[in-house]
Structure formats: C-alpha cells, structure tokens
Write a protein that binds this DNA or RNA. Structure first.
Length: 775
DNA sequence: GACCTGCTGCGGATTG
C-alpha cells in the first residue's frame, strides 16, 4: 500500500523524503496523496497537532507544483497566526529546498522588500494571513490577477478557528474573489485538530458542492486521560477554614427548598441569616480560598512544564501574584510565569521560548496558548473554573499528553460562592460545578458545539463591499451582489436586504453612485478603507502602551489605566503609574511595591449552548457520583440536587415567592435573552442570571401573555438596548441593525418551545395554556 | 459572565 501513494509523487519529492530520513509515510498522508492525485475533490484532514497534517497537505501539493511550474503563485497557505506561519515557513523551505519551488511568506512582520519581490516575480507557495491577503486586494487590486491566476491549491490551517466567525467569513469572501480570477477553480485543503461537524466544514470549503470534499481522519492513538475536578467554596464576607461539611450543606439545601415550596419565601434575608449564624466563628481563620487555591496549584504544578488556563486575565494575574508570594522564599523555585494578550510581544516571546526549552516552567495563560505554537512537552493542564464551551475544554486538554505513552492530564479547579452572597438563585445550584460536570460528560461523548450559520455578517459584508470598490475603483450594484452574496459567502443576505444596505451606506457617505451607475467609495468610505485597521474584519480595541524605561510591558484599554500615582499588577509584577502621555497613548510606569490589583480588562460575555445547559439539568436529575469530582464537590453537588428536587425546580422549572416567579428554562444564553425581551414586550419586569429568569409577576397566569402575543424576531431585537456588536455596525441604519441582531441574538422558535414546555408541565396535557401552580 | 487573532508603500535621510 505504502508504495502506491509514494510512487505517485514527483521523483524530487521522493528524494526529499529519503533525504530527510523519514521511515514511513503515515496512513493519512498516503490517503491525502491518493485523493489529490486520483480525484478532483477538496480535502479535509483531521489529525492531532504533530500528527503530520501539514505534510499530508503539502506532499501532494508540492509534487503537483514540481510537475508544472507557472509564473504566478500556485499554492496559498492561510494561517491564523504569524507565529504559525513562521513555523510552517521553515518546514516548507526544508522540504522545497532541492525542488526549485519558491516559498514566500507575507504577514505584518515580513519586510517590504520581500513582499515586493513576490509581486514582481510571483511563483510557488505563499504563506499568508487573511488580513495580508486583504491588503493585496486593497493595495494591488490591479496586480491580483497576474500574481494569483495559476493558484490551484489553497491550504487552510487551524480551520476550526475560522468556522462560524467574522474572520472566517472574511477569509471565505477573499477566497471567493480569488476564485473569480484564477484560471481553474482552486482545490481547498482544510486542516484541523478538532472539528465538531465535518459536514459544516465541508460547506465552508465549497458551499455549492459540499459533497466534493473528501474528509480524512487520522487514526488517533488511544491515549490515557487523567481528569479531575477540585472545588473551593468562598464568600466575600466569610474567610473559610474547613469548608462546611455535607450535613450543613444538606440542611441548608432542605431549609431553602422548604421555603420555596411554601411559596412565600424571602430568600434574600433568610440566606444571609442562615450562613452568618452558621459560619460566624470561622471568620477569624486566616486564608481565603484564592490563597488555598494558589497553594494547591504550587503542589500540583510545581515541577516540569504545565499550562494553567483561566478565563479572566485579572484572575490569572492575581493567582500568579499569590503563587509568587508563597514561593519566593524557596530556593531554586520552579518558575511560574504568565502569558496573555495584553502583554507585549517581547514578553510573550520570552515565555514561549522558555516553555519550548524544556526548562521546568508553569504558565498561567488565557486562550493565547490554546492553539498555535507547539509547546513540546506539557505534562499537565490546569483550568481555573470550567470553560464556557466543550470545544475549549477539548482543545485545552489536548495541549498535554502529546508524546506516545504519556497520559493527558487536566485538573479543573472550580470556585463556588457560599449561598450567603447575592449570587441569585442559580448560586444555590453551584453552577460552576454543574457546568464542569456537564462539559465533561459531553466531552466524553465527543459532542462539541456546532457553529452558528444563521448569522448575516452584515458588518463583514460592508467591509468586503468597500474592499471590492477599493480594488476595482468602481462596480455596478448587480456585480457586487453577485460577487459577495449570490456567489460569495454572504448567502443569508438577499437582494432586498443588500439594496437596503447600499442605501444606508449612501446616506452615511460611505459610497456614492457615478452617473454611469457605478458605485464608488465616497469621502468617508475612502477614509475608512485607507486606515491601517481596515485589513481586519474583526474589531480591535484601541489600546495604550505600558512602558518601563525602554521596555514595553503590555497594552491596556484606556478605561483600565489607573491615574498617575496609582498601581496595578501586570505580567506578575507590581507597577506604579508615573506619567501618562496622551498624544502617543503611552503610560510610563516604575516598579511598585504594593499588592496591587490587576487592571479591569473589560471583556464581552458570550454564549453558552443550550445543549450544555440541558446537560446541567440532567446532572441534577441523576444521582451518580462522578468519580472525577473531589469530596467537597460531591458534597455541593448532592446539596444542589437536594435543593433542586425538594424545591420542585426539576418538575416545572418554576419557583414562586415574594411576588416573583423564578424560572429555569434549562436553555442557553440566546434563549434566555429572547425570553427576557418577550417579557419586556409584555411589560413584565425580568432579569436573568446564568441559568434562570426572574419575572416580577404574581402568578404564572401573567406569563400567559408571552405565549399569546405574536412576536417576530425583529420586534424583539428592536428592544435590545445596544444593537451594535461588530466592527462596521455603526455604518448601518437602525433598521438594518435590528435585522442583524434578530438573526444572531434571538431564537424565537426555541423560546416559544420553552414556553410551551412550561405550559404543558403545569397542565400535564397538551393544551398550551399556563395554569397557576399555586392556585 | 471571557478570551484571541491582524495590519501600507513610498520617499527621503543616513550610513558603510
């Protein structure tokens, strides 16, 4: 078999394989070679990092190129990160060394003369980012056909990072525009480690003919996984000694549940009372739970190389600070470091080098280290609080146990507040533990969130529209619609919506119409298209640089910068602001001595999928004791189950009391948002937390209005307080924004489904009417 | 109730 595929390759490629001392060509690589040589199909290759994906794509591609050199770029590799492109560039250069196939790279850090050389003498393989490809259209539109006309392959690396988001739609549009000028339709090869649904990836690769995509999956070696969840209980007003035992938690759960069953429970007051009297004498004992957590992290991650993920940069900074305070006295201490997107490039590169060197290092990190650079031997992965998606959990777990025979290790550390805080009713269900268990179950079952293909991506379409006009100098509206919508990736935008968008852009002086009918960029559009920021479809925040002497430390949003004299933690060190230079957006700092707080990085929340929330309900209904959960966690889970069962929460999902109805629909973020807006439209005050919605209503009869009223997704989206989300949303009329938000924030079907379910549970039959359970 | 990614060409002055 192996001879088969190998013999298809160009003799020069065969020689290169010998010279590099390869012992075998892997199965997935052989199949890729056969697919490229014996069919005309696109290709989707799924394999672990270091599973030979890149070679699977490039062995046959290079071989084809060596057979027929042309005077334009012949293959494009698109990568999401500059660092990844640099890595692959080196590998490809080695492979192509004796084949006379030029290898070029183009991204923001590549010197101008190299880019110029490619433009003057195009050929071979080009490694590029989506944004740099965009810059080719914008700045050398007239040259694009000459430079790219013989492109016959497009390789998309880390493809999962492009699915279902603005950057991916942007890339898809660029590739569609490219395909319009190449002499033959380029074949696309997608590479990914984790793909939820290969069918959807196939639609991304070729929306007109997804069945022409051959999916190859590398047989992954069976690997051992060690996985555990450890729990910490904390309260701002209470410094824990030993956590409350199972009996105390059960008693608390039962008391609270009894109150809710009676229907006249003032939970805000009662909660405070119960916990204050129970735990008052524990207050004097010193450590807070963050310190306990830091101590455990030192124990678990104090040797070899590890990654500890967290979903908040501020939390990571404070944990590192805590860890450092506990380890400074130890001689020859194992290094704990930090890596996230607000630290300067040089700081991050230093950490990356250290991690790759094998020198024992543990990095606190955000999703910056979730993909991309290959850190050799990660022994174990830590996760502070469960992530928000299964996809993220899978990706992070996959960073350890990469060597054969070595287990992948993940330790999740969850923090829960004691119910004395005003965490809302959801707090009584210990939602972090529930989510940790639910995500783990779904991960084991190999379920991953599908991506959302209902979105309109109007903002990205506007960016591409401006790019087309900049490239060509002017186009007819019909040609634009064909390029972007009917033949491009913006298929959810129909002719009517497209026309409305053009009018909106005309009103804002982004575009104007010439007497001959051509649309061109107007003054404001020209200005936007000339900005450096134009090349990316996603929104970048305006940030200030933090500098100590000549060293850049990182970037912060202006809102997170303390006044002169104020202090902050960044990169695990304490700093004091000495001078702020407004013009150049520079903040000069000197080392501080204090125990400062990390800056308030202000992020956006995002969606939890309904499937995850439903699984959380199932976890409450079941009574297994997950083996991966520690004793404290099992105690809290048991208490949450007791409360859920005895309060009636699992029967109909509703609790009534104090003039309020608290409803757990067990659905995801989008459904909760929709239900809240429906209540708003019916003049019922509503607020939501992680899992539930609180209605200001006396009886469930009041909620009948939500089922009776005729809603449209648009009528609900209209009620959103903030309607701009994406980069060019400000260029769209209110009417268009409502249409966009109706598509990406509202799920009317699911909300009505949830309401019907609620109605049925009260009736016990299919009447679709809400009866008051208290009546 | 969070995170991440990316990014001109050109002309003129200076240096070896």
């Amino acid at each position: 078999m192996s001879q088969d595929a190998f013999s298809l390759l160009h003799s020069g490629v065969q020689r290169a394989i010998y010279e590099m001392g390869w012992k075998e060509i892997r199965e997935v690589q052989q199949e890729a070679i056969r697919t490229v040589y014996q069919t005309d199909n696109h290709l989707l290759v799924c394999a672990q990092t270091a599973g030979g994906k890149t070679e699977a794509a490039f062995l046959p591609v290079i071989s084809k190129l060596a057979d027929a050199p042309k005077d334009s770029v012949q293959a494009i590799y698109v990568g999401p990160l500059k660092a990844l492109i640099n890595d692959q560039f080196r590998r490809l250069e080695d492979l192509c060394e004796h084949l006379e196939i030029p290898v070029h790279r183009w991204h923001g850090d590549v010197p101008g003369n190299q880019k110029k050389r490619l433009r003057e003498n195009p050929g071979g393989i080009l490694l590029i980012t989506p944004e740099s490809l965009e810059s080719n259209f914008v700045n050398f539109g007239a040259d694009v056909p000459r430079v790219y006309r013989h492109v016959s392959f497009v390789v998309i690396d880390e493809m999962h990072s492009f699915l279902g988001n603005e950057r991916g739609i942007h890339l898809r549009s660029l590739l569609a525009r490219l395909g319009a000028i190449t002499e033959t339709k380029p074949r696309i090869i997608g590479l990914s480690a984790t793909l939820a649904e290969p069918e959807e990836a196939a639609i991304y690769i070729d929306p007109d003919a997804p069945d022409t995509v051959t999916a190859l999956e590398a047989a992954s070696a069976q690997r051992e996984v060690k996985f555990g969840v450890k729990t910490y209980l904390e309260s701002p007003s209470w410094k824990p000694g030993p956590p409350p035992g199972p009996e105390a938690l059960q008693a608390l759960a039962e008391t609270l549940a009894a109150g809710f069953r009676a229907g006249d429970f003032d939970w805000k007051q009662e909660q405070g009372e119960i916990l204050d009297s129970d735990y008052a004498d524990e207050r004097e004992t010193g450590n807070d739970s963050t310190t306990l957590l830091a101590t455990d992290l030192i124990k678990a991650f104090g040797k070899e190389t590890n990654l500890i993920f967290g979903d908040s940069k501020a939390l990571l900074e404070s944990l590192l600070n805590n860890v450092n305070q506990q380890t400074t006295s130890a001689s020859g201490a194992h290094a704990f470091v930090i890596h996230h997107g607000s630290l300067s490039r040089s700081q991050r590169e230093e950490i990356e080098t250290r991690l790759k060197s094998g020198q024992p290092t543990t990095a606190f990190c955000s999703s910056t280290l979730e993909m991309g650079i290959d850190i050799g031997n990660v022994r174990a992965v830590g996760q502070i609080n469960p992530p928000w998606t299964v996809a993220s959990m899978v990706q992070r777990l996959g960073r350890s146990g990469r060597r054969a025979g070595v287990p992948a290790i993940m330790r999740v550390f969850t923090q829960e507040n004691t119910p004395s805080t005003r965490a809302g009713l959801s707090g009584l269900l210990y939602p972090n533990i529930l989510r940790a268990v639910a995500l783990t179950r779904l991960m084991v079952r190999k379920w991953v969130e599908p991506f959302d293909n209902r979105q309109l991506h109007l903002s990205t379409m506007v960016q591409q529209l401006m790019s087309c006009l900049k490239q060509t100098g002017g186009m007819q509206a019909g040609a634009l619609f064909e390029t972007l919508c009917s033949k491009g990736p913006f298929r959810n935008i129909d002719a009517g919506l497209f026309a409305t968008t053009l009018r909106s852009l005309g009103e804002k002086e982004i575009i104007e119409q010439m007497p001959g009918g051509d649309l061109i960029l107007a003054l404001e559009g020209e200005r936007l298209a000339n900005e450096l920021d134009f090349y990316a479809a996603f929104m970048g925040s305006e940030e200030w640089t933090l500098r100590h002497r000549n060293e850049d430390l990182g970037q912060l949003p202006s809102s997170a910068i303390p006044p002169v004299g104020g202090g902050l933690m960044l990169g695990g060190r304490s700093w004091r602001v000495e001078e702020i230079v407004e013009n150049s957006q520079l903040v000069y700092v000197i080392p501080g001595k204090g125990k400062d707080a990390a800056p308030a990085f202000r992020g956006q929340g995002s969606e939890v999928h309904s499937r995850v929330v439903r699984e959380m309900k199932t976890v409450l209904e079941d009574d297994d004791e997950p083996a991966f959960l520690d004793e404290a966690g099992r105690g809290l889970l048991a208490a949450a189950r007791t409360f859920a069962r005895e309060s009636g929460l699992l029967d109909d999902g509703c609790l009534c009391g104090g003039g309020e109805i608290i409803w757990f629909p067990w659905r995801g973020t989008r459904c909760l948002t929709t239900l809240k807006l429906m209540a708003d439209a019916c003049d019922i005050k509503a607020a939501d937390d992680a899992l539930s919605i609180r209605f200001k209503a006396k009886s469930t009869e009041d909620l009948q209005a939500l089922l009776d009223k005729d809603f449209t997704a648009e009528s609900l989206a209209k009620r959103l307080p903030v309607k701009t989300r994406e980069k060019h949303d400000e260029l769209l009329s209110e009417e268009l924004l409502i249409t966009a938000r109706a598509a990406d924030q509202i799920d009317l079907d699911e909300a009505q489904d949830a309401l019907m379910e609620l109605a049925l549970s009260f009736r016990g039959e299919s009447s679709g009417k809400l009866d008051d359970p208290g009546a």
